[in-house]
Deep mutational scan, measured.
Amino acid sequence: MPSETPQAEVGPTGCPHRSGPHSAKGSLEKGSPEDKEAKEPLWIRPDAPSRCTWQLGRPASESPHHHTAPAKSPKILPDILKKIGDTPMVRINKIGKKFGLKCELLAKCEFFNAGGSVKDRISLRMIEDAERDGTLKPGDTIIEPTSGNTGIGLALAAAVRGYRCIIVMPEKMSSEKVDVLRALGAEIVRTPTNARFDSPESHVGVAWRLKNEIPNSHILDQYRNASNPLAHYDTTADEILQQCDGKLDMLVASVGTGGTITGIARKLKEKCPGCRIIGVDPEGSILAEPEELNQTEQTTYEVEGIGYDFIPTVLDRTVVDKWFKSNDEEAFTFARMLIAQEGLLCGGSAGSTVAVAVKAAQELQEGQRCVVILPDSVRNYMTKFLSDRWMLQKGFLKEEDLTEKKPWWWHLRVQELGLSAPLTVLPTITCGHTIEILREKGFDQAPVVDEAGVILGMVTLGNMLSSLLAGKVQPSDQVGKVIYKQFKQIRLTDTLGRLSHILEMDHFALVV
């Protein structure tokens, strides 16, 4: 994948999101292997301009796509893939009243899908469409860049269908997702969380590099694949309309690839034109409109599966009536509230959605109805927002919020430890010299600072030695090549209790 991002070429006709291997024109390309080798690009942008032909009021008969309808489940399912879809609609009884809503608040519980998330729908649909058009064949390999849930859905379907599955996901995604993927037989590649989507090191860039190296491999490409919004247009939206008897006044959905909100909203605009569509985008993402909503100094966020630093091709923002931004604290607070007060075992993005819903639905009156999409299960986040310690460490809970008995030293300040200034190293000294210094002084790690004293990161003896043994660096290389740029900081005025929580999850903390 090139470091400079080429513009994806656009073909003359058809839909841009065809499933299957992508040609340089962004659509299915038939021909000899030699032709494909000559024409197939190194990668295709996940934010390529959409060429979708959908228009409100256009006859369904003019759609270029294969459409399906929700099917009634048999008493005995032939395999677990038949437990994807037909998820329950559940009334939220307490939270709406707590925040003064007059309307009825309903939750579409997508964590009841077989793999635990709304992404099971698009995973199965992308595979079925690729099999139907002859792209996927027995023994082929599926590769997908994902925040985890699409990966789980694909790995689940691949396990049943017999495909090899490789999932490329950023490091910030939970260990629970990784464990589930491994249990399903998927191979996992992790990428830096802070890598831009168009960087060769991003999950998108690495996935395309693997595709170019592995024979008979395919990126189904949830960011561009029409099967993504079509899955929701054909099934999720129809289920909502049936469950609500066609009567709903507002739908609120958090947005990642945009397939969920695009597919549902398009069908609702056709069948229930008075329904307002509300999009939820986390602070630090750029999906919301108008652009002024996205202006923030924050560039990272903890909530998973929603928000991006690019506009995915499948996201149709014209069908969203209003956007709201959400933050991590309210997302996790509301997710825990949904679990504790409503018994809905949902993930953090569901918290984002409901946090926005109780604001947006203030305009609705008694007798009206708001539906929220709860995308995934708490299963993926047992060591994250479900953990009091994690919430404390991230600053989303305060010590006084917890009532468990603490040891005698818990409320003492870090400054009472009488710490001395640490050994520091410059980023320009060599790895070999740094190892000598650390061994001589008896230290395992040291902060790396520039000549102005600005902290650049941390270097550890173990990481340097393993990097040297693996051949990633040489003793003569500058130590700046092996620094940890993500590390926890703590102030002298913070409590030892807070430091204790940090050290339970990290090997060190830097006192500043």
Rank of each mutant, 00 (worst) to 15 (best):
Q242Y: 08
A231M: 09
P145M: 02
D249W: 02
K211F: 09
P2A: 13
K83P: 08
A155R: 02
K102C: 09
P33T: 09
K39W: 11
A159C: 06
G205F: 14
A8V: 14
E9I: 02
H203A: 09
G274S: 05
N225H: 02
A130G: 10
K108Y: 08
A186R: 04
E128S: 07
P78E: 02
K72M: 02
I152E: 04
D79I: 07
N149T: 02
E37H: 07
I261V: 14
C165F: 05
E62H: 02
G31M: 02
E4S: 11
N212L: 12
S254G: 06
V160M: 08
V206W: 06
G11S: 13
P273W: 11
L248F: 11
V255K: 02
K247W: 09
G134F: 05
R161D: 02
R45E: 10
P2Y: 07
S199V: 02
A130V: 08
A157P: 15
L181W: 02
T235D: 07
P273A: 05
A38G: 11
Y233I: 02
S63Q: 02
E131M: 02
T257S: 07
R276A: 13
R18L: 10
G256W: 02
P2Q: 11
K75C: 15
G11K: 08
T236A: 04
P74W: 02
S23Y: 13
P273R: 08
R209C: 08
T141Q: 08
A60F: 05
P2R: 15
G100Q: 15
P192H: 15
E40G: 13
C109A: 15
Y233H: 08
C272N: 04
A71C: 02
V118G: 02
D140H: 02
N212I: 06
L251Y: 06
I152F: 06
N113W: 06
K172D: 04
D245L: 04
H17S: 08
S174K: 02
S19W: 13
A195G: 02
K72L: 14
D140G: 07
C275H: 04
I167T: 10
K177L: 05
N113D: 06
G85Y: 04
N149R: 06
S123D: 02
L105V: 12
A38V: 14
G100I: 02
D179C: 11
R91W: 04
E144T: 02
A114L: 06
T68P: 10
